[in-house]
């Protein structure tokens, strides 16, 4: 991979979103990730000491298995000391606010905090109250930058470039941070992005983010190179956005029939966990030629290693100067 990258160091203290990141900043992170992928391919047990003696806190206000494990593994491969904190309902019941929690953790002098929170903007607020680098591991329906980076890395791995590709993001766009982060990142790298969903799951004025909106899956998938399927966020649905799962699957679930409208070598991505039979046909999900779903998981660790390393280096440079 030889994308343009003139940066010597990642220029931001935090990674809060993909909106506003410049192409060379994204490429910096992707190149770094790519290097980690290669190293791990050579020796899957290889460890690095970039984060030796650094404290890395995974602070999760919302349940997560995949993302938290991925960050934990990434941290361990970089030799960081890792603390996993799941802020359950108990401390919220005690009346402890997110800022109280952040201040307490900050006093332990961590080097990086990885945060997931159920409210949009919460991670940004937290980043203003601590002295270390903060990575957004998902804030409500707002952003999930490492997911977008790992999607981009997966695409690059298979398609070599992102510029000029047609990408369709399908499903619950309204409640999806993955959709928003992907839209910003893919647009910045020059892809043509479409979103496909029933109108109730398309947020107002999404076109202004630089996407084309389709309500019909077959039209929307026509000639696309990449299909990013989103999980139908059943747990977040209050009110009838879709009338039933079977109706949703019939019109918006990805099956062979609809897939035929895309390019013959179109790649399927999914941030997981999948609802088989809701947004994706089980058969497709397991087709390793077409679906990169498990590859994404592997890329995820490399991307998170890259982000942890990039922020640590930024911080060290700040401390020196």
């Amino acid at each position: 991979m030889k994308e343009d990258c003139s940066l010597k160091i990642y220029p931001h203290e935090h990674l809060l979103g993909t909106e506003g990141l410049l192409p060379n900043e994204i490429n910096y992170l992707l190149n770094l990730s790519h290097n980690f992928v290669n190293h791990l391919k050579e020796d899957k047990k290889k460890k690095f000491d970039y984060l030796k003696n650094k404290i890395c806190i995974n602070l999760f206000f919302e349940n997560s298995t995949r993302t938290r494990t991925s960050f934990e593994l990434a941290g361990k491969k970089l030799s960081a000391d890792i603390l996993n904190i799941a802020v359950g309902a108990s401390s919220i019941k005690k009346g402890e606010t997110m800022i109280d929690t952040a201040m307490t953790l900050n006093a332990m002098q961590p080097d990086i905090i990885v945060v997931r929170h159920y409210d949009a903007g919460a991670v940004k607020l937290l980043s203003e109250k601590v002295n270390c680098g903060v990575i957004n591991a998902g804030d409500g329906p707002h952003e999930h930058p490492t997911q977008a980076l790992l999607d981009a890395l997966t695409i690059l791995n298979r398609k070599k470039t992102i510029a000029g590709l047609k990408v369709a993001i399908c499903g619950d766009i309204m409640h999806s941070r993955v959709a928003r982060s992907n839209i910003h990142l893919l647009n910045t790298l020059g892809a043509e992005v479409r979103v496909i969903a029933p109108a109730t799951l398309i947020p107002k004025n999404i076109e202004s983010l630089g996407v084309k909106v389709f309500y019909d899956m077959k039209n929307g998938l026509k000639d696309v190179d990449i299909i990013i399927m989103l999980r139908l966020q059943l747990e977040r649905m209050s009110g009838s956005f879709v009338p039933s799962i079977r109706e949703y699957f019939r019109f918006y679930g990805l099956d062979r029939d609809k897939l035929n409208y895309a390019q013959s070598d179109a790649l399927i991505l999914h941030p997981g966990p999948m609802n088989r039979g809701v947004e994706i046909d089980s058969e497709l999900a397991d087709d390793l030629d077409r679906s990169a779903i498990f590859e994404q998981v592997r890329m995820g660790v490399a991307v998170r290693m890259a982000c942890l390393k990039a922020l640590t280096e930024n911080k060290e440079l700040q401390n020196e100067s």
């Binding site: 949009a120 409500g140 707002h142 941070r177 928003r180 947020p203 107002k204 004025n205 202004s208 983010l209």
Partner: peptide, 15 residues
């Protein structure tokens, strides 16, 4: 307010 802004910020809008 519902619109581009609410969509960008990932907040629930009021039309």
């Amino acid at each position: 307010n519902e619109g581009e802004f609410s969509t960008r910020l990932g907040l629930v809008g009021i039309p």
